[in-house]
Design a protein around this nucleic acid. Structure first.
Lengths: 239, 239
DNA sequence: CGAGTCATTGATCTGTCTCAATATTAGTGG
DNA sequence: CCACTAATATTGAGACAGATCAATGACTCG
């Protein structure tokens, strides 16, 4: 059995229920395997791509954890998202054929390289895949709208609560614990994402901890009262 | 001559250099005319679509001015963007087949209705159009990243300066003045978009006015020193 | 012309930032 | 294996940008 060639196939990737192959037939999956021809490893702290780089491909994260960030000309940096296994990054490059943000690995990572020309070609052939690509882009737009709501309307505690819940929810969908997380990012990166200073992030963690809602020890966080967290950023709809 | 039928055609729409038909051949344009079969008028204050509505179509704005906004379950509203002639709205609905935000006309408006299934069909036929649709979605993602940078990193003055410059730049691309604007939105809507309270918006307008950078009289704004505005939110790269 | 919406301005309050000191952890080389 | 260094995290005290509360003014539209 060609275990090597099996490895690089979407058709038996254990992320296929989260990633690109979602809802495809065997036939469509086989075609997709041709698109995802190569893999790429990125060491911790390294960039998968940087703002200004030529755009050629989308990337499906196989393992590892990324942040994407934009920076203004005067050096201010804004983290625009954190991405994990099964998520697609690189969409920002399509408009101008150049990437518009940096994608940095927060731990050693591996991605599947999907040349965008090939993605488009196979999309023309398979409406199901075409729709899926569109949904992925639209999902990113909807996510961004949620971040705007967070940045524009919420207070520090609400932001951090929303952040934690979103993180564990996504990790849970990947088979990890719903209550324990090892954060892959620094307080500064969390703060940048949430529009607050690292000291405020740290203080807010401590506050939650004092209130018995979570337990924190540096990067390790345990959620003791998920409902209390929900109530913080969404008082009406707390479960 | 069938002046009526000419009117509903992309092929002789005066927005075709800004909107969907960008860069298409005559043949492709003719096909696009079939997609854009209908128009719809929306009165001031009315919704083109609301969060939760079934998603069926994208909309190209022909005339008028829109805001899009999301609201959290506890009633907080965040304006996520202001859209004008030639811009495409509705992309948020693709992921879940339901719209995820409200699109409200800020003045009487008319849109071209583009059933998304038709857009996808013609995209499969014409790679140029397919790429264009992808670029439109990617452009929205990049725009959203810019808003995140604004909301996460900038102070009130910087936000308002960036907002004004962006607005006149887009109006200018549509043949309007680069220095005078009639704002179509209230101070509260500007504030919601920029993550600040309406009083702060008003005060910041007044401050710019005192400094001789702009002239303001309610909804009417004249930009006297565009470079000074640029310098506020981008000290390094001011023209 | 009158009622309602929207904008401006003032006075005060507060959440978050800033500056600063200390503590913890991870990484490095002897 | 341990000391040393650099990076990261926590915590405190004080300052400030923007929020809040409140009153007045301007415009719009039936």
């Amino acid at each position: 059995m060609l275990s090597e060639s099996l490895k690089v196939a979407c058709s038996n990737c254990n992320l296929r229920e989260l990633c690109m192959p979602i809802g495809l037939t065997t036939e469509e999956l086989r075609k997709l395997d041709d698109v995802v021809a190569t893999r790429r490893k990125i060491g911790q702290g390294e960039a998968l791509y940087r703002s200004g780089d030529n755009f050629t491909s989308l990337y499906a994260i196989r393992t590892g954890f990324f942040k994407t960030c934009v920076s203004s000309s005067d050096g201010r940096e804004q983290v625009t998202g954190f991405q994990m296994a099964g998520e697609i990054i690189g969409l920002d490059g399509i408009t101008s054929d150049r990437h518009n943000c940096n994608a940095i690995a927060l731990e050693d990572a591996e991605v599947c390289v999907m040349p965008f020309a090939d993605v488009e070609e196979i999309s023309r052939e398979f409406p199901v895949l075409q729709r899926h690509v569109h949904k992925i882009m639209s999902r990113e737009i909807v996510r961004d709208q949620g971040v705007m709501l967070l940045l524009g309307n919420m207070r520090a505690e609400e932001r951090l609560a929303a952040f934690l819940l979103n993180l564990v929810q996504r990790l849970n969908a990947r088979g990890f614990s719903r209550s324990e997380v090892i954060l892959r990012m620094t307080r500064e990166e969390i703060g940048s994402y949430l529009g607050m200073k690292l000291e405020t992030v740290s203080r807010t963690f401590s506050k939650f901890s004092e209130e018995g809602i979570i337990e924190v020890k540096q990067r390790w966080v345990k959620i003791l009262k998920p409902d209390a967290l929900k109530q913080i950023f969404d008082p009406e709809n707390a479960a």
